Computed example of a mutant assay.
Amino acid sequence: MKNSYVHVYTGNGKGKTTAAIGLAVRAAMAGKKVYIGQFIKGMKYNECKVVEYIPNITIEQLGRDCFINRDPEEEDILAAKNAWEKCKHILNSKEYSVVILDEITIAFYYKLIDLKDVIDAIKNRNDQIEVVITGRYAPKEIIEMADLVTEMKEIKHYYTQGVLSRDGIDK
């Protein structure tokens, strides 16, 4: 049996990062060290405060402001590449038991980082590290490689009624 697995939380529904943070809290409460690298994200979301309460969790926002409504700029591309190099190093270390690559699928979608390089690094990681990948548009190659895939499907969302992200609930 394997020692660790690859999880993917994808889809257009709400809850991908929330599920990953829940897994991080569970792992930390079991004494495991967790690293969360947030690709693309630069806004300070409330989940970043978890490190003030749970010392076994490290969160780094590795992106700039979200560029979903604009084309990525050169700085976004460089930030994604640097983020990936950092996470690739962490995947080979013995420092963490769980590594969450939050919104990395968006970096694939915008072709900011090389999908094959990420797949190779995950396959060749320290075999004690559980990996969680989050974000919309998970490529089929990631889905095929993963051991667990959950698709969040939007059925209904208050955002379509003009409700913006609410503090403590959506951000």
Rank of each mutant, 00 (worst) to 15 (best):
F67V: 04
F67K: 06
F67A: 09
F67W: 04
N69A: 12
N69T: 03
N69F: 13
R70F: 03
R70L: 04
D71R: 12
I77K: 14
A79T: 07
A80K: 07
K81E: 14
K81N: 13
N82R: 15
N82K: 15
A83P: 04
A83S: 11
E85Y: 12
H89F: 09
L91M: 08
L91S: 09
N92S: 14
E95Q: 14
E95N: 12
Y96F: 12
Y96A: 05
Y96M: 04
V98W: 02
V99G: 11
I100R: 04
D102S: 05
E103S: 10
T105N: 15
A107Y: 09
Y110D: 03
K111E: 07
K111N: 07
L112A: 05
D117R: 03
V118Y: 01
V118N: 02
I119N: 06
K123D: 03
K123Q: 08
K123H: 05
N124E: 06
R125A: 01
R125N: 03
N126K: 10
I129A: 11
V132M: 00
V132H: 00
I133V: 10
T134A: 00
G135M: 01
R136H: 04
Y137C: 09
Y137G: 09
K140R: 10
E141A: 14
I142D: 07
I142N: 08
I143P: 13
I143L: 11
I143W: 00
D147L: 06
D147I: 08
D147A: 05
L148S: 11
L148W: 09
T150W: 07
T150H: 09
E151F: 00
K153S: 14
E154F: 06
I155P: 06
I155C: 05
H157C: 15
